[in-house]
Design a binder for these strands. Structure first.
Length: 745
DNA sequence: CGAATGGGTGGGCAG
DNA sequence: CACCCATTCG
């Protein structure tokens, strides 16, 4: 035991040791990116166990993703062995789900409730709007959803919401909210917010339940605390009230989920909320080179609301950051592809060491089309979001919980079985007026007759569902899924279709089955409901397999918590990253900057930043200007290159009509004229035009159109000098010294 | 009454 | 470019 203990603290720096051994009372660990946060958490759990401060089942560790939970579980198992199995290592949602499945009857739901995702929410809201005779244009679904979501986050129920919003629109929103919540209950369903909100409600209404969990969890740890919302904070606070051994770990600089309610104040104010809290900062970075850290530090220093931190390492300076100006998104993808080939053929890196990160999922297409290496795309369409999986999933959910009208409506006519919108509308109306679920209607002969000529088909459908319900937890999951495929006619309809697309869908369904198999194998007590929960809560990133030798493409958001030897951050253009939606709003811009910080700090050895002067967005070609974030990185850390001007000049000889303005979009339309003028001059007598002025790197210059800038690169080119100039407002431009008409400052 | 087709529109990150 | 809705056809 003594030995193990010393081992446990071996290899930790002083700060980390302190965080591991400070087990009692509230503790805030401000852990910079790459500062060994997971190590601290896992060792802290092990330390508590080794010192017999608590039994495994008395420890609750909350992470943000399932992937993080699994990793923590594995790493703790490596230290303490089997004991790790009884620790609650969960995400907020899965922890709450487990609590709810046990006691939800106390709130008037039944334990087989379904979980509604954003799509289901949308359907439900649409129904509400229709019933209330409200127009989607005046009450956009997205805004309704976000209003309801933030109300739930602030624990404002329908009544309270109505009180606080008594203007015309507010009243309507209150009505939608009330109806939506009522519908959820009728469907025996919960949205993601409810999972936390209902747990808190359960605790509030049932002190005995709360007390049980308060007593149970002697030590509570929360990872990624900067991304918790108010509800999650309340949930954790309630649980921690008794023992007060709460340790939160986070980095305010990596808070990137404000858009879904994350409240950065939770971490900034932790010490106010828990006035005796200890505070430990981890600033030594074990991941990246000093160059990368300097860049990250410099960028994030532009934010106002933050706790001062400076990452450092003793691992050396490393290589400069490559910044590449590209003509458009195809050029960008080709450049990245080329660099990847170079990196891999050098033998220093393999594909799995490399990641491409971007702001929006829409950017993947150009990349995918132009990559010449094995790759994987994370997120975008979740596996469970494809149509065929959603269909089967809806069947499974209806079988599990027949009161779920939303899912029932979704599949009652899939595949086509002659139950059209009109009939479905009738069933819904019946259900509404009788105060029962649609399934109740269609399984009752009394109502079926009233449905006229469709009744035979409906009868058939409800028979299928009722038949399948018999098999729940009686036969293996995979067999049940097979039955769903065949008995619903879904498989047949795909076979008949027999298009490449249909075959793809069949393949996907096979994969779905293997996921079920996997679940049955991995989980101790597999149940039908457990499988559905599992699906509701996994994300694409959870399935990211680091062993496969392929480069990986994902959004900057998904990349949080991951690291790669080589990182490409692409599309660093104003309006894309930072997003145009953050323009003029300081707090949103700061969140974008934090996202940039997250991106930079994913890189261990080599970081590439690319941006294009032109990009196709929303189907239109737009001119782009480099992101301000690039300019925030000290120039001395960068090695700038581009492909724009070379193309530009190459085009003179080959295609006269092609003025090059298409490639040089960043300068705007006027560049057409300027450049034709330059061609004229240069064909006359290039020698004459040769600049007599000499330039040096670092000099500041003034350009008529581009404004002030600094020379960051000089290349000799045919007796002239090509200057790479970083302009303050428009980004980098490559200009020939003799033609640029520069004024030294 | 149900299915198919075309036009218009909207498009950020996510458990 | 994908999805949703409205219109038209069967």
């Amino acid at each position: 035991m003594e030995n193990k203990m010393t081992n446990l603290l071996d290899g930790l720096n002083d700060r980390q040791k302190e965080a591991v051994t400070t087990t009692e009372g509230p503790l805030l660990v401000l852990a910079g990116a790459g500062s060994g946060k997971t190590k601290v958490l896992t060792h802290r759990v092990a330390y508590i166990l080794e010192n017999r401060l608590a039994a495994p089942w008395e420890i609750l560790a909350i992470t943000f993703t399932n992937k993080a939970a699994n990793e923590m579980c594995t790493r703790i198992a490596n230290i303490v062995g089997q004991m790790s199995e009884d620790i609650w290592i969960k995400t907020f949602h899965s922890a709450c789900l487990r609590i709810l499945r046990r006691d939800i009857e106390k709130l008037g739901y039944t334990s087989n409730f379904n979980i509604y995702d954003t799509n289901d929410q949308k359907r439900l809201i649409k129904d509400c709007l229709r019933e209330l005779n409200l127009n989607e244009d005046n009450y956009p679904i997205k805004s309704v959803i976000s209003k309801i979501s933030s109300a739930k986050d602030e624990m404002i129920d329908c009544k309270e919401f109505a009180k606080r919003n008594d203007d015309f629109r507010g009243e309507k929103y209150a009505m939608i909210y009330a109806r939506y919540q009522q519908k959820l209950k009728e469907n025996n369903a919960m949205d993601f917010d409810d999972l936390i909100a209902k747990t808190v409600e359960l605790f509030k209404d049932n002190p005995d339940v709360l007390e049980y969990y308060q007593n149970k969890f002697k030590y509570i740890m929360v990872d990624e605390y900067q991304d918790t919302n108010n509800l999650q904070y309340i949930f954790v606070s309630m649980l921690a009230e008794k023992h007060r051994n709460i340790c939160v770990v986070g980095d305010d600089d990596q808070s990137i989920y404000k858009f879904r309610g994350a409240n950065i104040r939770n971490i900034l104010d932790f010490e106010k909320q828990f006035d005796d809290a200890k505070n430990i900062k981890l600033e030594q970075n074990y991941r990246s080179t000093q160059t990368i850290l300097d860049a990250a530090n410099a960028v994030i220093a532009n934010n106002f609301e933050r706790k001062e931190k400076k990452l450092w390492t003793n691992q050396g300076e490393g290589e400069k950051i490559e910044v590449r100006t590209c003509s458009d998104q195809v050029d960008e993808a080709m450049y990245i592809s080329g660099e990847i080939e170079k990196l891999v053929s050098s033998g220093k890196y393999s594909y799995k060491d490399i990641a491409i990160l971007y702001r929006t999922n829409a950017q993947t297409r150009a990349l995918e089309d132009n990559l010449s290496c094995p790759y994987r795309v994370l997120s975008g369409l979740r596996f469970y979001d494809t149509k065929e999986i959603k269909d089967i999933l809806s069947y499974l959910r209806v079988i599990y919980n027949p009161n779920d009208d939303v899912n029932l409506t979704r599949i009652i006519n899939v595949p086509k079985r002659g139950i059209g919108d009109t009939t479905v509308g009738k069933i819904a109306a019946f259900a509404e007026s009788m105060g029962v679920s649609m399934f109740d209607i269609i399984s009752d002969e009394k109502y079926l007759e009233a449905l006229g000529r469709s009744s035979a088909k409906i009868r058939e459908f409800s028979a299928i569902i009722n038949n399948l319900r018999e098999y729940i937890d009686n036969i293996p999951l995979v067999d049940l899924m097979d039955k769903v495929f065949t008995e619903t006619g879904y498989a047949d309809s795909l076979m008949t279709e027999n298009t490449p697309e249909a075959r793809g869908r069949i393949e996907n369904l096979q994969e779905f089955k293997s996921k079920a198999l996997e679940y049955e194998k991995n989980v101790e007590e597999p149940t039908f409901g457990g499988f559905l929960d599992n699906i509701s809560l996994v994300s694409d990133i959870d399935n990211y397999d680091t062993e496969q030798d392929a480069i990986v493409l994902m959004t900057l958001h998904s990349a949080k918590g991951l690291e790669f030897p080589v990182v490409f951050m692409c599309g660093l253009e104003k309006g894309l990253f930072p997003s145009y939606q953050s323009e003029g709003e300081l707090d949103k811009l700061e969140e974008e900057r934090r996202l940039c910080y997250v991106g930079i700090t994913r890189a261990r050895e080599k970081l590439y930043i690319t941006y294009a002067l032109q990009r196709v967005m929303f189907g239109k070609t737009e001119s782009k200007v480099v992101s301000e974030f690039v300019g925030e990185i000290p120039e001395k850390l960068l090695n700038r290159t581009d492909n724009v001007v070379r193309k530009q000049f190459a085009s003179y000889g080959s295609a006269r009509g092609y003025s090059g303005s298409d490639l040089f979009g960043g300068a705007g339309k006027k560049s057409d004229m300027d450049y034709s003028a330059i061609i004229a001059k240069s064909t006359k007598s290039g020698a004459e035009m040769k600049s007599s002025v000499t330039y040096k790197k670092g000099e500041r210059v003034m350009h008529k159109k581009f404004g002030e800038g600094m020379i960051v690169g000089i290349t000799e080119s045919g007796g002239d000098m090509m200057l790479e100039i970083l302009f303050d407002n428009v980004g980098t431009r490559n200009l020939m010294a003799s033609f640029a008409r520069l004024k030294k400052l």
